[in-house]
Design a protein around this nucleic acid. Sequence first.
DNA 1: CTGAAATTGGACTAGAATGGTCCTATTTAA
DNA 2: TTAAATAGGACCATTCTAGTCCAATTTCAG
Lengths: 155, 155
Amino acid sequence: MLRISRLTDYGTMILVHLAGPRVGLCSASDVAAGTHLALPTVQKLLKKLAKAGLISSVRGADGGYRLTRAPAEITAAEILNVLEGPVAITDCSAEMRQCELEPICQVGSAWQKINRAIRSAMEDIRLSDLRRPPREFVLQDLWQSPVANPYSRSS
Amino acid sequence: MLRISRLTDYGTMILVHLAGPRVGLCSASDVAAGTHLALPTVQKLLKKLAKAGLISSVRGADGGYRLTRAPAEITAAEILNVLEGPVAITDCSAEMRQCELEPICQVGSAWQKINRAIRSAMEDIRLSDLRRPPREFVLQDLWQSPVANPYSRSS
DNA sequence: CTGAAATTGGACTAGAATGGTCCTATTTAA
DNA sequence: TTAAATAGGACCATTCTAGTCCAATTTCAG
């Protein structure tokens, strides 16, 4: 169905939480409470995000996590890349080598083309755009057809 | 990894084959031979494509399949839709109802935005664009005896 | 020094999804 | 009537995913 995994969605929620207005150093428990996700899952994802350098960690008592960059400096493409792996529509487009079917397969490089389109769409969206607007606003805005979101950066 | 399934890739290869220059009614065996995919897999996919109306079928001896429309009239979005299901980055964006986390989840409608970007990128690409430019020596290969297919297990 | 609160790194498992095959019924040309 | 096709599923092995848990390490506070 061409979808991201649930963990990627969770990871994004976590990043959004860490990008919150007055959030400093957050422990895993803080994040779990803030996002309503299960603690073990949050721990796992925080480790992954830290390893990838999107967030930094402080160990020991009173430790926690925080973003390494401002929310406006982090693109959706980056987030997907970390949580989901590189965007690669097909096996063929994933690897640098050409697949063994290459002399046979009649499908050209269009998948790559689609790939790039997706990637560039996601590079236009920042973590700061992912924060949902205040509640009243959402209620009237959420189910509209392809109209620009007033809160997004590049519209 | 945000990728389409292998079957979707195969299905696209099949459509590309049916969109070939002087291809009329093709039996499943013809398609299997032309694409070097395993016959049962091809049969399964042809049935699916026929059911979705992308191709039409003729039953009985000398039956087969053919495209219902010209290759330039079929978009990649449509193909993905049939083979992979609707493009829906997250569960939230898949269904018309709002998810239960809606009052809690801070992630806004940006996934929908990414969704639309992907969809529109794919509506700009037609089946006719997916055909790779003809290469004489390659086309000859298509009529040779089946070559070991790295994707299929038996025979 | 000791204990509590954290992160780190990985192992483990149940369940779902995927890819692939096969079987039976039906249709149609020769 | 027979052979060559499609139609519609059933079935299974394997992989992937989501979620949990454990043992080790680090650090702050008394």
